[in-house]
Write a protein that binds this DNA or RNA. Structure first.
Length: 244
DNA sequence: AGCACA
């Protein structure tokens, strides 16, 4: 039943386990950036990260659907995140949110490693197995918003901007960015289109950014794909060419 | 390196 094609030697799971994360980044920002990075693959139920010795530099991202976790592993493996390549695998065990949703959650006791260990392991294993099938309990509980539905496709029609549009440029000018957005989030968004070079945000001017691509064809493609993208609900970004 | 359930 386990498919081993991706993410190392661990069977598929709703949850991805990420390590080699930059330990200097504070947890809130880290989680926000992870959310920004991985939301493109599907609905995320939860992101967990801890700063304890044993768990720093690691995070768990729980997807509603296993296939989204699979896509995330394939597409984001070794992605340079805060200057370090992410290492991504499936998590070894099912996340509590998932177990709760499919009815297989068994509260775990305080860690005791001296007694009944084998037996508890087996119970956990059985619970995991029991949930491997279809899980209608949570399948419809979350309204995933596919990336495509967030992107108003311009369909070749000229966008009628109030001001004279700038001529094509390999650098894009992005406006209406939520103020809590950081450059890593934007990098994640724009990196997925070919030719991506860099993101530049101006500290003194929140809400805008410049995104550079190798050439105009590439910047144009990215602009069309990400035009109106909502980093935050009811807050579509506006992308134009930067002025030369 | 390190697989959790703040």
């Amino acid at each position: 039943m386990a498919e081993m094609a991706t993410g190392g030697d661990v069977p598929t799971n709703n949850t991805i386990y990420i390590n080699n994360l930059n330990e200097k980044i504070n947890l809130n920002e880290l989680k926000k950036s992870l959310k920004a990075v991985f939301s493109q693959f599907g609905e995320i139920l939860e992101i967990l990260a801890f700063k304890t010795l044993k768990h720093k530099g690691q995070a768990w991202v729980v997807f509603e659907k296993v296939k989204d976790a699979t896509a995330a592993i394939e597409k984001m493996q070794n992605f340079p995140f805060y200057d370090k390549p992410m290492r991504i695998q499936y998590a070894r065990t099912k996340s509590d949110v998932i177990a709760k949703a499919d009815g297989t959650f068994v509260p775990r006791e305080k860690r005791k490693r001296h007694e009944e260990k084998g037996r508890k392991r087996k119970d956990q294993h059985d619970a995991n197995q029991a949930a491997m099938g279809v899980n209608p309990a949570y399948a419809s509980a979350y309204g995933a918003t596919p990336l495509s539905s967030q992107i108003p496709y311009m369909g070749g029609a000229k966008s009628t901007l109030p001001e004279a549009p700038a001529p094509p440029n390999n650098i894009l000018f992005v406006q209406n960015i939520p103020h809590e957005t950081n450059s890593m989030m934007l990098q994640m968004l724009f990196y997925q289109y070919p030719g991506f070079k860099e993101v530049r945000m101006i500290e003194a001017k929140p809400g805008i950014a410049f995104i550079e691509y190798g050439d105009e064809m590439q910047s144009t493609e990215a602009m069309q794909r990400l035009q109106g993208f909502k980093i935050k609900p009811d807050h579509p970004i506006l992308i134009t060419y930067a002025k030369k």
